[in-house]
Write a protein that binds this DNA or RNA. Structure first.
Lengths: 237, 237
DNA sequence: CAACTCATGTGAATGGTTCTTACATGAGAA
DNA sequence: TTCTCATGTAAGAACCATTCACATGAGTTG
């Protein structure tokens, strides 16, 4: 396992072979360590074992590297959300909640990607590739909202799916930003971010007229018990 | 108007007189221009007309300046929210919505403060002064939620106020972060951030059992018209 | 196989940044 | 009036981004 690309590898020819990838990985590690702000181009080069000028053969400047990472992040984000949504199986509401948890899981497990995507100051709309990737990720949430909106109980007004998607996205993003990462200097919370989001989404959906009582697996159609809130249930995760 | 602090002011003695304040203002301007990341300590010094070493007499380092700005931001934020809440006048729900709008207004009108507070990577919990200021600002939202929770209609479960506050805060922060500032490279939106937040909060409150139908000023107790959503009303702002 | 080419990496240089240290200044206290 | 000390300056070490002329060698081509 040590025959290739092991930190100090004196036996590297003049050419690296896969510097672009190595730089992306190095930058990712550095961002995870020291935050998107405290990462330096020169450090990435050092970490890949090349001279400080080498990276310029692959990225116009530091910002372009950051943008590449953000793009890759959006791509991984999209596949993660797609998997979580699983086309609405087994049922739309629980799949929807799974998407929310996947959102938080991504923020928690991939802080480097997350901060490159949302906190690094990379201008998204400027880069077509990047904004397309971001759009694709968001479209998963939007599609899920669309399906959910179509399920609106009779007698209730049907909410605009785009608006629903924006609300859910905002709440997810807000929770992830404010309380998401346990890593450094975030606020303390009396509950897990996941539980907070789940409760918030349930309350929101109920506000739209969805029946959101926890149906026990055995009795999916139990009689509704109105005066209980989504916040008292102990999630059996 | 040019007798004081006009870019190149040759008639300044050896001592500046109010450098600390001048640096804070200069930094604020620079952050507004180039973002929290692209602001440099040296630039602030230049902008205040002093040598690059002078700021070190007032701030241990660049981060401490940023933290000072964040703290001042939280203080202004607190007074703004306090004013918006106005102790729940004229009625709890509308005061609550006003707080939400104030949140977005702050993000929009004071992008420099906002990004120092939330996007600059300043570790909040590390600095007691800073975290206290942040806590005071949040406590406004929490107090409002408390009052709102106490109003829960009979027959509905009373939600934990802290949780409500966190939900509202998260949604506000998410919307502000994702769509709040029109300035640079944010996402386009089919509606204003304010309307988005207002609709979201109304749906959320309805999910908690609050009657959130828009009561016309003339007829505050009109019969509830269940199948309308908060999203169709054209806000007469 | 030899020559060529061009993507990729190097070294060195420029100019800007943070932060330190020794020194200068002058406003207010004594 | 003199002294002191907070506040500012000059100079410098260490670091970073970025550029440019130049080196290398993998792959192509005759």
């Amino acid at each position: 396992m040590s025959w290739r690309k092991d930190h100090r590898r004196p036996e590297r020819g003049y050419h690296h072979g896969n510097l672009k990838e190595a730089l992306l990985q190095a930058a990712l590690g550095l961002i995870a360590e020291k935050g998107a702000a405290g990462f330096t181009f020169a450090d990435a080069a050092r970490s890949a074992g090349v001279s400080p000028a080498a990276p310029y053969r692959h990225f116009r400047d530091r910002d372009e590297l950051l943008a590449s990472i953000a793009q890759r992040g959006f791509e991984q984000f999209e596949t993660l959300l797609t998997k979580a949504w699983d086309d609405g199986r087994p049922d739309t509401v629980s799949a929807f909640e799974r998407v929310g948890r996947a959102y938080l899981a991504f923020a928690r497990n991939e802080p480097a990607y997350y901060s490159a995507m949302f906190e690094s100051g990379v201008p998204i709309d400027v880069n077509p590739m990047l904004s397309a990737a971001s759009e694709r990720a968001f479209s998963i949430i939007r599609a899920a909202a669309e399906r959910l909106a179509a399920l609106t109980p009779p007698g209730a007004a049907r909410p605009p799916a785009l608006m629903m998607a924006l609300h859910i996205w905002s709440m997810s993003h807000g929770i992830a930003s404010l309380f998401g990462r346990g890593d450094a200097a975030r606020r303390k919370l009396p509950m897990s971010a996941e539980d907070l989001l789940e409760a918030g989404v349930l309350i929101y959906l109920r506000g739209l007229g969805f029946p959101t009582e926890r149906r026990s697996p055995e009795d999916p159609n139990a009689a509704p018990k109105p005066p209980r809130g989504p916040w008292d249930q102990k999630s059996a995760t």
